[in-house]
Each structure stands twice: as C-alpha cells, then as structure tokens.
Amino acid sequence: MFARVCEADFSQQALYDELCEHNQASQSGAVVTFTGRVRDYNAEGGIDGIELEYYPGMTESALQQLLEQATARFELTNAGIVHRVGKLPNQAQIVWVGTCAAHRQDAFNGASYMMDMLKQSVPIWKKEWAGDISTWVAAKGTDSEAAMRWLTDEKDD
C-alpha cells in the first residue's frame, strides 16, 4: 500500500507498475485506477488553475487510514493513493487512486469509496484562480451525499 502527498506530477504507468509489483494476477485479477484532473471552468465561468493546501502530517495519515479502511472493506489485495498539492494549471493531474482485487467489483468499489471518502475526510483545501482573483472552493453537498452513501451501506451490512 502507498499513500503520498507530493507537488511533482506523477506517472500513471509508474504508479500502476508499483501497485502490481509482487502482486500476481492469480490473487489480483482486477486492477482499477482513477485519475482526477483540473477542470478549466467552474459555475461562474473559465478558470486558470487551482491551488491546493494541506495539513502536513495529518493529510498523509488520513490518506493512509483511507487505504486501510478500503482494503479491509473490499478485500483489496493492494491499494495506492497519491494527491498533489501546490499550484496546478488547468488539465494537470491532481489525484490518483489504484486498487487491486480478485474480482472487478471490489476493485471498482474500493476506488470509488476512496475518492468519495477523500473528498469528505482528508484535510486538503482547493482554491481556484481566475486572473488575479482567487476563490476558495466551498464543500459540495453532492460530495457529502456520496460519502454518506457508503456510511449508510456500512450500517446496513
């Protein structure tokens, strides 16, 4: 498992290779990866990029906790998560999650769970830039609902 916060860009191929290293297809027939990128617009119009702030120490441990929760819940055979911070231009890669499981449904669910919970529980804050004007992004109700869906399912399990 690996959880990282970094400023530098990442290579999806390198992360995929790391995820699958020492992880035979007999146990990990399914691999799902997700990459989030910077959109060039928000509700008000075009933007020029974003800036991400984090809480050194807490952010890394929150990401690690998320990996452990997803691994236990979906029987993942491996999982990784990488989140960039600092100033990122439009189109740049922001976040990557990867999951390995015996079968695809657990791999898909594990990746989806990590992204939904990340947006709810990991201390990272996004600011959007348009020219010289910067605006902090407000937490979205739809993100809360997505996270709540997993928490409700948990209760029903």
Binding site: G36, L52, Y54, Y55, M58, H83, I94, V95, M115, L118, K119, Q120, S121, V122, P123, I124, W125, K126, W136, V137, A138, A139, K140, D143
Partner: peptide, 10 residues
C-alpha cells in the same frame, strides 16, 4: 490543535 473549513480535495 487545528481549525479548518470543510475539506475540498480530490
């Protein structure tokens, strides 16, 4: 101790 707004990563 830390104080911060609701998170908006991802």
């Amino acid at each position: 101790v830390a104080f911060f707004p609701p998170v908006t990563g991802g």
